[in-house]
Design a protein around this nucleic acid. Structure first.
Length: 223
DNA sequence: CGGCTGATCGTG
DNA sequence: ACGATCAGCCGA
């Protein structure tokens, strides 16, 4: 995957996100998710996404019109973040599509670092999180030189790993990414061929589990 | 690379 | 109870 030079690129505005969840998902491929932290930015090229198409989608948290405190951000304006806790342990990040009241969203499943600085910071954050879990269970701690190979191999691929690598916690839930200084999306690279597949981990969604609403580039995470 | 298992907690 | 998951382990 190409590494983008660390120049500032144009931020995506409301009109980009105020479209249907499938269009926004496909168009997000190759764009750059930016987290500006006090210590510097972390920029990830988005390489895998899934569409969640709102109240009629059996795979969506909003299926059947479940507008609760948790799902509220998906009902907000396109470009609003929806970050939730999954399996009691990991965060998943979505970006709302469409407009107020229409809870379509795009799950960010995978990214690759856009520059060397981001790559270094992603590894730091992944290592810190791994060591936090190791400490809790009394396991051995890893240093920067002896971190497991799986850390580099799966730096930010997978929705949970993407959030850890990008420094995205639930504190970033319900952020308007069109206006935020900390969290936003910019133009990126030309995505090339877009591959499609079934969404992951929604076996309970009956016929909706077979919809080809996962989109990815660069041959990553084909299953 | 593929397959399996246990971990862990906010939400409804 | 239940997940829009992951690390660690095994085998090829």
């Amino acid at each position: 995957m190409d590494i983008v030079t660390a120049e500032r690129k144009k931020r995506l505005g409301r009109s980009f996100f105020a479209r249907d969840g499938i269009t926004v998902a496909r168009e997000l491929l190759g764009k750059i998710l930016v987290h500006e932290t006090p210590a510097g930015w972390i920029r990830g090229i988005i390489t895998e996404v899934e569409s969640y198409m709102g109240e009629t989608d059996k795979g969506s948290h909003t299926y059947g019109g479940r507008r609760t405190e948790r799902t509220e951000p998906m009902y907000h304006a396109g470009g609003t973040s929806y970050v939730y806790l999954i399996y009691g342990m990991y965060s998943c990040m979505n970006i709302a599509a469409m407009g107020e009241g229409v809870p379509q969203a795009v799950l960010l499943r995978s990214a690759v670092p856009a520059d060397e600085e981001s790559k270094r910071r992603m590894l730091e954050l992944r290592l810190a999180e791994l060591n936090r879990r190791q400490a809790k269970k009394g396991g051995r701690l890893y240093g920067p030189e002896d971190c497991p190979a799986s850390l580099r191999r799966h730096l930010a691929d997978g929705p949970g790993r993407l959030c850890i690598a990008m420094g995205i916690t639930r504190a970033f839930n319900d952020v308007d990414m069109v206006k935020s200084r900390e969290l936003y999306v910019t133009e990126g690279i030309c995505p090339g061929e877009i591959l499609v597949g079934k969404r992951i981990g929604i076996d309970y969604a009956q016929e909706a589990a077979d919809y080809l609403w996962r989109f990815y580039i660069d041959g990553k995470r084909e299953r």
